[in-house]
C-alpha cells in the first residue's frame, strides 16, 4: 500500500491479502453473511486475540519470574509493587487468559448452534475440541505459578482426581496393587511428587510457558488452515 500508492480496485484488494503473509490467513473474498457479527459473534477471532495477548504479556512476565519455591511468590510480589506497570502486566495476563476461556466456550457454542461441524468440517470440530482442552490446560497450569494459597490448593484439588484414574492411579479401580503406588502413578507423573511441591512448580512452569503454548500454536495453525480448506466460513448451501 505504501510502496505503490493505493488504487481502489478489486485487483488491489485481492493483492492486499495475497501479498501479505499475515493477511494470507484470509481468503481474498468471502460471502457477505460471514461479515455479520450476528453470525459468528467474532468469537474464534477473539479467542485468538486473547491467545496473542497472553503470549506477549506472558513473555514479559517471564523476565521477572523464577519458577522455584523460594522465589516464585516473592517474584510476583516484587512484580506487583516494584516493577513499573508490573501489576498491570500481571492483570492483563490473567484477565486475557480468563477471557480466552470465556471466548472459547462461546465460540464452541456458536459453532454448534450454526451446525458448522457438519460435513466437511467434522475434522476441524475435533481439532477444536482438543483446542478447548488445551485452553483449559494452559489456564490451569498457569494458575499454580503465583505459588500462593489460592494457586496451591486449587491445583491440589484439581490434580487429586488423577489418583482415582482406573488402572493408572493408586486409588483408582483395577489398579495392580503392588505395581501402581502413590509414588509412580499418573498423579505422580503430573506433580513430580506425592504432593504439590517445588518439582510441580517447575513442571507446570515448563508446561505453561513452553510445551502447551507450542501445542496450542500448532493446533491453532491447523485449525485456521482447515477453516480455509473446508471451504471457508460455513453458510447455507
Amino acid at each position: 500500500m505504501f510502496r505503490h500508492g493505493y488504487e481502489d480496485t478489486g485487483r488491489r484488494y485481492t493483492l492486499q491479502i495475497l501479498q501479505n503473509v499475515w493477511m494470507h490467513l484470509h481468503p481474498p473474498r468471502l460471502p457477505r453473511h460471514a461479515l455479520n457479527f450476528r453470525f459468528t459473534w467474532c468469537m474464534g477471532g477473539i479467542t485468538f486475540l486473547m491467545f496473542l495477548v497472553t503470549a506477549v504479556t506472558g513473555v514479559l512476565l517471564m523476565f521477572y519470574y523464577r519458577p522455584t519455591a523460594e522465589y516464585a511468590f516473592h517474584d510476583v510480589q516484587y512484580l506487583e509493587f516494584d516493577i513499573p506497570f508490573g501489576m498491570l502486566l500481571r492483570n492483563m495476563h490473567r484477565w486475557s487468559a480468563h477471557g480466552m476461556v470465556i471466548a472459547v466456550m462461546l465460540h464452541m457454542f456458536r459453532v454448534f448452534l450454526t451446525g458448522s461441524y457438519k460435513k466437511p468440517r467434522e475434522f476441524n470440530w475435533s481439532v477444536g475440541v482438543i483446542l478447548l482442552l488445551v485452553t483449559f490446560f494452559l489456564s490451569f497450569t498457569g494458575y499454580l505459578l503465583p505459588w500462593d494459597q489460592l494457586a496451591f490448593w486449587a491445583v491440589t484439588v484439581g490434580t487429586n482426581m488423577a489418583r482415582a484414574t482406573p488402572v493408572l492411579g493408586h486409588e483408582g479401580p483395577f489398579h495392580p496393587h503392588d505395581i501402581v503406588t502413590q509414588s509412580n502413578d499418573v498423579r505422580f507423573a503430573l506433580l513430580g511428587g506425592t504432593i504439590v511441591g517445588p518439582s510441580t512448580l517447575l513442571r507446570f512452569y515448563i508446561l505453561h510457558c513452553v510445551a502447551v503454548p507450542l501445542l496450542a500454536s500448532v493446533l491453532i495453525a491447523l485449525h485456521f488452515w482447515r477453516v480455509r480448506k473446508d471451504g471457508g466460513i460455513s453458510g447455507p448451501l
Partner: peptide, 26 residues
C-alpha cells in the same frame, strides 16, 4: 444468510471489522 451469498472483498470489509472488534476487546 441465504440472501447474502454474494462475495465481498476481505480487504477492506472483513479486515475493518476485525480491527474494530480487536480494538473494542482490547
Amino acid at each position: 444468510e441465504a440472501a447474502q451469498k454474494d462475495k465481498v472483498y476481505v480487504w477492506p470489509y472483513l479486515c475493518r471489522s476485525e480491527f474494530v472488534c480487536a480494538i473494542i476487546v482490547m
